[in-house]
Amino acid sequence: MSATQEHHKPVIGISCGDLNGIGLELIIKTVSNSRLLDLCTPIIFANNKAINFYRKSLPESNFNYQSIKDFSRINPKQVNIFNCWEEEVNITPGQLTEEGGKYAVLSLQAALQAFKDKQIQGLVTAPIHKKNTQSEQFPYTGHTPFLKDAFNARDVLMLMVAPNMRVGLLTEHVPVTELSQHITRQNILSKLSLMQESLVRDFGIDKPKIAVLGLNPHAGDEGLIGNQEETIIKPAIKEFKQQNNCIIQGPFSADAFFARGYHERFDAVLAMYHDQGLIPFKSLAFGDGVNFTAGLPIVRTSPDHGTAFDIAGKNLADESSMYCAIFTCIDIIRARQEYATNRKNPLKKMGSAVLGNVVDEKIEEE
Results as ranks from 00 to 15, higher is better:
4 T>F: 09
4 T>I: 08
5 Q>G: 10
6 E>K: 15
7 H>V: 09
10 P>D: 13
14 I>Q: 04
16 C>F: 03
17 G>M: 07
18 D>H: 10
19 L>A: 13
24 L>T: 11
25 E>V: 02
25 E>Q: 05
27 I>C: 10
28 I>K: 04
30 T>D: 02
30 T>N: 07
33 N>P: 10
33 N>S: 15
35 R>T: 14
44 I>S: 04
48 N>Q: 15
54 Y>I: 11
55 R>W: 06
58 L>R: 12
60 E>Q: 10
61 S>K: 14
61 S>P: 01
63 F>A: 10
63 F>E: 04
72 S>K: 13
73 R>T: 10
79 V>N: 15
80 N>H: 08
82 F>C: 11
88 E>W: 08
90 N>M: 12
93 P>H: 05
93 P>T: 04
95 Q>G: 06
95 Q>Y: 11
100 G>F: 12
102 K>N: 01
105 V>I: 10
109 Q>A: 03
113 Q>Y: 10
113 Q>P: 02
114 A>Q: 02
121 Q>F: 01
122 G>E: 06
129 H>T: 14
133 T>D: 08
135 S>L: 06
137 Q>R: 11
141 T>H: 02
144 T>Y: 08
146 F>A: 03
150 A>H: 10
154 R>V: 02
158 M>I: 01
177 T>S: 15
179 L>W: 06
186 Q>P: 03
186 Q>R: 12
189 L>C: 11
193 S>T: 14
194 L>V: 14
195 M>R: 08
202 D>Q: 06
203 F>T: 00
204 G>K: 08
205 I>E: 14
212 V>D: 14
214 G>P: 04
216 N>S: 07
217 P>M: 11
220 G>W: 02
220 G>S: 01
223 G>D: 09
227 N>I: 09
227 N>L: 05
228 Q>A: 07
228 Q>V: 01
231 T>P: 03
236 A>E: 09
237 I>D: 00
238 K>M: 05
243 Q>C: 03
244 N>L: 09
251 P>N: 13
252 F>C: 05
256 A>C: 09
260 R>I: 00
264 E>A: 15
265 R>I: 00
270 L>E: 12
271 A>P: 03
273 Y>W: 12
274 H>P: 10
275 D>T: 06
279 I>E: 06
279 I>N: 08
281 F>A: 00
285 A>P: 00
287 G>R: 05
288 D>I: 00
288 D>R: 15
288 D>A: 13
289 G>L: 05
291 N>L: 06
293 T>E: 03
295 G>K: 05
295 G>M: 04
296 L>E: 06
296 L>W: 11
298 I>F: 11
299 V>A: 07
302 S>A: 13
304 D>E: 06
307 T>F: 05
310 D>R: 06
314 K>Y: 12
314 K>E: 09
316 L>F: 01
318 D>S: 10
319 E>I: 07
319 E>F: 08
323 Y>E: 12
324 C>T: 15
329 C>N: 14
329 C>E: 08
330 I>E: 02
331 D>S: 13
332 I>F: 02
335 A>F: 11
341 T>L: 14
346 P>T: 05
347 L>P: 01
353 A>N: 08
357 N>S: 09
357 N>H: 14
359 V>C: 10
365 E>H: 05
